[in-house]
Write a protein that binds this DNA or RNA. Structure first.
Length: 568
RNA sequence: GGGCGCCUAGCUCAACGGCAGAGCAAGUGACUCUUAAUCACUAGGUUCGGGGUUCGAAUCCCCGGGCGCUCACCA
């Protein structure tokens, strides 16, 4: 009685299909020229191997806030779906919310709620924040759906497992799993070395007495009456306490849920899933994916979908963790890394390669922007220095938030260099928008103004939370910077002369900058030494932003008196 | 203990059987005007070690080392 249904041929074949590279040399010379070149972008490679319509699936338990690392899966899934669409393959992207999973983390519960709600399905726990959502699950699911949307990840279907179970769609799988209880126990033993007692059945009933699902064990199945015998045990798991109730119940129509691995295999069959990437925690041998594959084949008579195992995002060589503070949650990082750059970060490496990303006190974030800008420039046909990743224009296109955006227009948009912006943001009184337009050489388009705003916001957030000391600068106002002591006589004399020149100059960036150069020239001092003296006098360091505009942004009397002090 | 990934220039990585490369950092120089910008140039390597296959190996195979993540309860 396998619950099988006719399904499309799986997308698998060989994932390392190098069809394009093996193409015979009968094509145009330009193509032949590319043959030994770099491999195609990984998602396009998957798309090229696909045969027939595809159903791409992913799901998530809405147990709390999303952290950045967990965004890789959704980006991978979305990119595969986009690549398939581009290849002309009919595709449906489905995203499941596992809201019948039990509450198992108490971090977000108030102390008095812990007793009551640990082990209860997330969909039955009240919204911890207030009553803006129907449940805990709805609250956090909404948060990650919003996050996905901001990243341009828009599944065709979001489905809620509580609703799928309630609809009765899972009943036939529940029945099949209970019938095959012995087989499933054997699979757990054989594949994962997990030894469940013979009384164990692959099902969790929602206790009719206390409402918990994480504490129940089904100990018997009566096919004839379609009921199970279950117990809600106080000591079944150590993170929740069952009420001790024992009884008989119907497991259908949303009153019970299959264990994770069985549930997964059932979903594949129900939705006809052909591709489902899984993180390395699940993809390990003997892990969830292996168990679910075996259950799909041996219990539901169904070939599992193609897996695309993906690695995680490490921060400073370590897995990211909420307890490590800065930058853990997706929303925090989204402040500093706009969606397009975040997509680039996740897309560029092949899925199985771990991403090392350490934004704290490093230039990792400015460099991510630079890399993203190079991709845009190269896609726009501008010459860029250095090498580019394979199919760089695809990487750029898939990084765009809007799947339908005009690639050429996006690529051509002016993108102010991030590090430069971060500097401008720190110069008091500067009109950044005007400055950027001047550097571009023409008025910003609406889209460019949008990009600028996004980056200014990111730059300020970066300076506040991550930037290394050398990227920060501030005018030393209260006292003479110690760096002044290192100035030589020529530099001191220069500062003195500049004081006189500035006393009469117009007080704007151009005029001051002009005076700085003119005075250096007149005194035969190398420009570099002149600037170094200025930076020492005002910033206490040997370099800085454009000095003319920096000084013009300051109070004139302060500038003049500081120049006198520093030249003494 | 099992699995996966990684180890190439100071850092981050590319090259996936055909001359070891780029970005950033560093150094030198240019610039009366983006002086943390831009431009030119320079330097930097026993590709973790040892075997093997090959005309040819960073790349493929075997042995060893190191780092990281992950699984072995639940999801």
């Amino acid at each position: 009685m396998p619950v099988s249904r006719s399904r499309r041929p799986p997308a698998r074949s060989n994932t390392r299909s190098f069809a394009s590279r093996r193409a015979t040399c009968s094509g145009p010379t330009s193509l032949r020229h590319r043959l030994p070149g770099p491999r195609v972008f990984w998602a396009d490679e998957i798309a090229a191997a696909a045969r027939g319509p595809q159903v791409v699936n992913d799901s998530k338990t809405p147990s709390g806030t999303v952290h950045v690392g967990s965004l890789r899966g959704p980006v991978v899934v979305d990119t595969i779906a986009r690549a398939l669409r581009r290849a002309g393959v009919p595709v449906e992207l489905r995203y499941g919310v596992d809201d019948l999973d039990p509450m198992d983390a108490q971090a977000l519960l108030t102390p008095d709620a812990i007793d009551r709600y640990m082990g209860v399905p997330l969909g039955h726990v009240p919204d911890p924040v207030g009553d803006c959502h129907a449940s805990y699950a709805r609250h956090f699911a909404q948060a990650f759906i919003d996050t996905f949307d901001g990243l341009g990840i828009r599944p065709d279907v979001y489905y809620w497992m509580s609703e799928i179970y309630a609809s009765g769609a899972m009943d036939r799988y529940i029945r099949a799993a209970l019938d095959a209880a012995a087989t499933i126990r054997d699979i757990y033993r054989r594949v994962a070395h997990v030894d469940h007692p013979d009384e164990w059945h692959p099902l969790f009933v929602i206790c009719t007495s206390c409402g918990r699902i994480g504490t129940t064990i089904v100990t018997g199945w009566d096919r004839a009456s379609g009921t199970v015998r279950y117990e809600c045990r106080p000591d079944l798991v150590d993170w929740a306490r069952g009420c001790g109730h024992a009884g008989t119940a119907s497991p259908f129509g949303g009153r019970a849920k299959l264990p994770y691995n069985v549930d997964w295999a059932a979903k594949w069959d129900l939705f006809g899933v052909t591709i489902e990437p899984a993180g390395k925690d699940l993809s390990t041998r003997g892990g969830s994916r292996d168990r679910s594959d075996a259950i799909a084949r041996e219990v539901f008579g169904n070939e599992p979908p193609m897996n695309v195992p993906y690695e995680f995002l490490n921060i400073g060589g370590r897995k990211m963790s909420t307890s490590r503070g800065l930058g853990a949650s997706a929303t925090q990082v989204a402040d500093v890394i706009p969606p397009e750059q975040l997509r680039t970060l996740f897309l560029r490496p092949r899925p199985k390669v771990a991403i090392e990303f350490d934004p704290d006190g490093t230039d990792a974030i400015p460099r991510l922007f630079d890399e993203s800008d190079r991709l845009a420039a190269a896609t726009a046909g501008r010459e860029v220095r250095g090498e580019l990743p394979a199919d760089h224009e695809r990487v750029f296109a898939y990084s765009l938030v809007e799947p339908d955006a005009d690639i050429a227009t996006e690529a051509a948009a002016y993108r102010p260099p991030f590090a430069h912006l971060a500097l401008l943001e720190q110069v008091p009184g500067v009109d950044v928008a005007e400055r950027v337009a001047a550097e571009k050489g023409s008025t910003l388009t609406a889209r460019e103004a949008e990009i600028l705003d996004e980056r200014r916001h990111a730059a300020r957030a970066w300076l506040e939370a991550y930037a290394p000391e050398r990227a920060r600068m501030s005018v030393v106002r209260d006292e003479l910077p110690v760096a002044v002591a290192a100035l030589d006589d020529g530099q001191r004399a220069y500062l003195r002369a500049l004081r006189d020149a500035l006393a009469e100059a117009a007080w704007n960036g151009d005029a001051v900058q002009g005076a700085i150069f003119a005075t250096a020239k007149a005194r035969d001092l190398a420009a570099g030494r002149a600037f170094a003296a200025l930076y020492a006098a005002f910033l206490g360091r040997d370099s800085g932003p454009r000095a003319g505009w920096l000084l013009a942004a300051l109070d004139r009397e302060f500038v003049l008196s500081r120049l006198v002090e520093a030249s003494a």
